[in-house]
Design a binder for these strands. Structure first.
Lengths: 141, 141
DNA sequence: TTTGATGCAAACTTTTTGCAGGAAC
DNA sequence: GTTCCTGCAAAAAGTTTGCATCAAA
């Protein structure tokens, strides 16, 4: 988990200006485990910082994605964001919508095998698994 | 790979009507390896069958998804469709946009491990890997 | 003949863009 | 003071929906 100060420093070093809006967005992304959508980020940080527009959220997320400081995953036609940039599997609960991360040591191994088999140069993997979480699964057995 | 006749029979058995539009869509999906978008399906089959509207494509895709006769994957905010419903890894070339399938025997094993670790009931996995295909990769080394 | 399917147009959702004003440097 | 960023409003892109018409059964 990165610290706010580190991320802000990275942005400053790249020549980007540090604005209250950017701090609010980055701060929230680092603290949450929710894999929020742009809309959700916007609504949440508006409680604390009412002066952040949705388009600024989108523009900041683009910036952070480009600098590899956040990852984007797609769930049901909506982009969701995650400042935990280590490779992991996203587990999506099809009932309550929760997204959980799982570190999975064998991911790298799979990527290597696929690379060998396909002759692709693999840059990243996106692993989403869908199912029912521990709380919800009793309803679907 | 399923045959057109089988798929059409499945639909008929479920009580759905067999229309020229549905045949055109299903026929194209079975023949292509392109993982087309709805828009692309529409454009392509219009050459042969000019009387297919985009909303019918969407409605038919919804039907096929529901009946598990096609899978949907998201690439860059757009839904892409695939009649190859066996579990596999989708390899997306970040240069030319091609999507290739790879059967990967260890997928099931990974799913089992993740299920055990997370206590989730895993229903399906979506595995996309992004990189550069054999033709494009020389440009990115 | 009786549904269910089609196709248009309009609505909706998520994301992107242009630009004038404002804030960071 | 200069340049980059913000936020509005408008547009774009992808998808869904309502409804009158049409065709499969």
């Amino acid at each position: 988990m990165q610290q706010l100060e580190e991320l802000v420093a990275s942005l400053r070093e790249e020549g980007f200006r540090i604005t209250p809006q950017r701090i609010a967005i980055v701060d929230y992304l680092l603290k949450t485990e929710e894999h929020p959508s742009a809309e959700h980020i916007h609504k949440t940080i508006q409680k604390k910082y009412p002066m952040v527009s949705l388009s600024t959220v989108y523009k900041t997320l683009d910036l952070l994605k480009e600098k590899k400081l956040v990852n984007e995953i797609e769930v049901e036609g909506e982009a969701r964001f995650d400042a935990h940039t280590d490779e992991h599997i996203n587990l999506v609960c099809m009932n309550c919508g929760k997204i959980e991360d799982i570190d999975e040591d064998s991911l790298k191994e799979i990527q290597n095998r696929v690379a060998k088999k396909s002759k692709y140069l693999i840059v990243k993997g996106s692993f989403e698994m869908f199912g029912y979480c521990n709380n919800c699964k009793s309803k679907f057995n």
